[in-house]
Nucleic acid binder design. Structure first.
Lengths: 176, 176
DNA sequence: TCGCGAATTGTTATATTATAACGTAACATG
DNA sequence: CATGTTACGTTATAATATAACAATTCGCGA
């Protein structure tokens, strides 16, 4: 089973997430003779700023701010499409939003656990789930080609036993 | 396991699908002291015209034609929301489309098998999938509350052994 | 290094999906 | 039949996504 669920919900050095993602992206681009242009890299970086999926227009806002010039939607959507094709990011259909893939290149099922409270999304790839979906498809004579699996609920942080509610040190939702 | 996958992909008396859906709808409405108004019933009926999900604006077009007067989007979305809340229909996020639920009232997982070719969508509820998703959630300390599970691929009809490809009678994609 | 074709980005306009806000009509109930 | 509630009509607009075409940049062979 592949998952980044622990990482997503715990304090961690998020800079390493970003760096790792960028390294993987460079490698994958080289491998596929594709170019990780500045725009594409910026979008990927923005999607890795947090473990929460971002919408295209959020990306547009942020990229416009960063660059100082107005970036039009097509630019964003082109970068998104490029990153999607390489498997570097995923689209979360129920949210119309996009998120970095923690294990691009590996064949996996992209199942997401999306927190309705904080909006974080952890990705899980679970062989037995894949197998079961495959066998359910087989039974129905359905030729499985792709999937979109999204679970909604509360992440450990948001559901957790609200500890230290009375202490001065309340839960620290900060990232990292 | 609950599923309508056989029905969806085979010739059948579709009028019975529609009638059954409407009966269930009436029952559920009575049970919930809700009103199946003409607009709501029309939308439900339209969603049961085929086993292919329809978008809100397709519903709008068809309802406008049927009624002779222009129906505005909010009317459609209100009917959709009503039917969604009662569990009479589902939203398929990846398609921005809606489809009638073949087994409303029963607790189920709404997993869809969507044909990329003909657009039909069969619903499957599979206990072992639910259980597995639940246990995966548990492992990740994720409090599961809802889900959106969509499989893409080819339905039996569209994947099937392309018979008569060379004869004059090409494949007939008609419904029923 | 020049120039050419391909890939990328810029720009404008518009399609598609969904909702806000507010007024009007129908209903159900005492 | 008066009243509160529920549903619908209407207008405008938000949010998401793409089409079409021009301009630019890049890689690479001549």
């Amino acid at each position: 089973m592949l998952t980044n669920s622990r990482l997503v919900h715990q304090a961690h050095d998020h800079g390493r997430c970003i760096n790792a993602a960028l390294s993987r992206a460079e490698a994958l681009c080289t491998e596929n003779q594709a170019r990780l242009t500045p725009t594409r890299e910026s979008v990927l970086r923005l999607l890795w700023q947090s473990h929460q999926p971002l919408g295209a227009y959020q990306l547009q806002d942020q990229l416009s701010k960063q660059s100082g010039k107005n970036i039009a939607p097509p630019t964003i959507y082109r970068a998104i499409e490029f990153l999607l094709q390489l498997g570097l990011i995923h689209r979360i259909a129920s949210l119309n939003a996009y998120i970095g893939c923690p294990f691009p290149g590996s064949d996996h099922s992209n199942l997401f656990m999306i927190c309705s409270d904080c909006g974080s999304a952890a990705e899980v790839s679970h062989n037995s789930i894949n197998d079961l979906l495959q066998s359910a498809s087989d039974k129905a004579n359905f030729t499985l080609q792709g999937q979109s699996l999204e679970l909604f609920g509360l992440c450990p942080n948001c559901a957790g036993p609200k500890i230290q509610l009375d202490s001065q040190q309340s839960q620290d939702p900060s990232h990292e």
